[in-house]
Simulated assay, not measured.
Amino acid sequence: MAVPSAHEFHWQNLARLPSGRVYHTLSEVGGQMYMLGGCDTAGRPCPGMELYSPEGDRWISLPPMPTPRAGAAVAVLGKQILVVGGVGEDQSPLKVVEMYNTDEGRWRKRTSLREALMGVSITVKDGRALAVGGMGADLLPRSILQQYDLRKDVWAQLPSMLTPRYDANINLLGNKLYVAGGRQCKRPVKAFEVYDAEARSWTTLPMMPCKRSYGGVVWDTAGRLCLLGGLRQGGGHQSSKFTKNVNIFDTNQGTKTLALKTKRADFAAGFLRGRMVVAGGLGHEPSALDTVEAFHPQRKKWERLATMTFPRCSASSIVIRDRLLVVGGVNQKMRLCLNDCVFT
């Protein structure tokens, strides 16, 4: 299958955000993008919820979340958006679970988690949400796997992970849930495990090649796990260093290593029109990066693409209908970015 050339990608500036935001969560329902919570310019978690309408290129303010929060886990169950945990106004993890009905335009409280958690990773299988790991109020990582049943409004405990962690990267392939990396306290972990939903058991996979944080993670359409760049951390007193390493894990063919053109961390990443794309972030420059590159699968190399209009890091991104939307973040002056842009 032919992939587009580097010249076919371009950036388009979209409507500015109602307010600057970081640590917000993006979600898609029916081709529409929802932005939930996040921290404002003073670093306070906020309850805001906005809908981006691509038809009118405008932001629409929706009823705010009952509980202000940042870094929440979000799952889409039909026409409803489930919001789980995160960090509250007192900077502590939350156990509150709320659900927004996109048809009715209203919020409802749902059964809370058994304990307050931040850094939960979430996905959906067979109409049920699967919530993995998290960090509790004691700042210790958890190994729990929980399942939420929308019809019954109950959380059920499933067999726990082998490695406790939060902020893990997860992907569901058939009946198997892959969990890669994550953090324990402030330390990244290399653990890679898979949960078999039919056997209800966990299996250890080959550990990731290096400990890294603030890297990009892309699961491509073939189910390969791609770990991109980030801050590589050594042992002892060795300081963290930006890396351009790209490690790819294929469930059928094993692992291989590539290299980005630019060392970077804390960037936007996605799988777009047959290519892995990385944009912006931080590197060995005094300010945020605006450079963009994409991997050409036939040529087996990374190619430069059009630069971002607004350099930024700590942005949220999502791919909707062959468009990479990059929202908010911090710009080159280390101020919250109001600009929303799309890469196609």
Rank of each mutant, 00 (worst) to 15 (best):
P93R: 03
M65N: 04
V292S: 02
F310H: 10
T41H: 12
Q238S: 12
R273T: 12
M207H: 11
V120L: 03
A315M: 06
G133R: 09
A137H: 03
K263G: 02
T163K: 14
K301I: 06
G229M: 09
V278Y: 10
H237W: 13
N247W: 15
I60H: 12
S160D: 12
P141L: 14
E50P: 01
P63I: 00
R21N: 02
R44C: 09
L336T: 09
L338E: 01
Y195K: 05
Q12Y: 06
D153S: 09
A131K: 11
L117W: 06
N169K: 11
A75P: 15
M99W: 09
Q32Y: 06
T262A: 11
L77P: 12
A2N: 15
R108Y: 03
W59P: 01
C226K: 15
G43I: 06
V132D: 08
C46T: 14
D322A: 09
V326Y: 04
F242W: 05
H24R: 04
G174S: 02
G329R: 01
R323L: 11
V246I: 08
V179D: 12
K300I: 02
W202S: 13
S5M: 08
K95D: 14
L172S: 09
V97A: 07
V87W: 10
F343Q: 04
A156T: 12
L172C: 09
G274S: 02
T307Y: 07
S213F: 02
S19M: 13
E115G: 10
I248F: 10
G181V: 11
P164A: 03
K244L: 11
H24T: 07
S201E: 15
H284P: 07
P64G: 03
L228M: 11
G56V: 07
A129F: 12
L82F: 13
G280E: 02
L51P: 08
L325E: 08
G20I: 00
L62M: 13
R323Y: 12
R335P: 00
G38S: 04
V277N: 07
L258Y: 10
D340H: 09
G274R: 05
N247V: 09
P45F: 03
M161W: 13
C337K: 00
E28S: 09
E198P: 00
W107V: 14
A259K: 13
R142G: 06
P286G: 04
T257H: 08
R110P: 00
G43H: 11
K125W: 15
S287T: 11
H7T: 13
K261I: 01
L172N: 06
A279H: 05
C46P: 02
Y100Q: 05
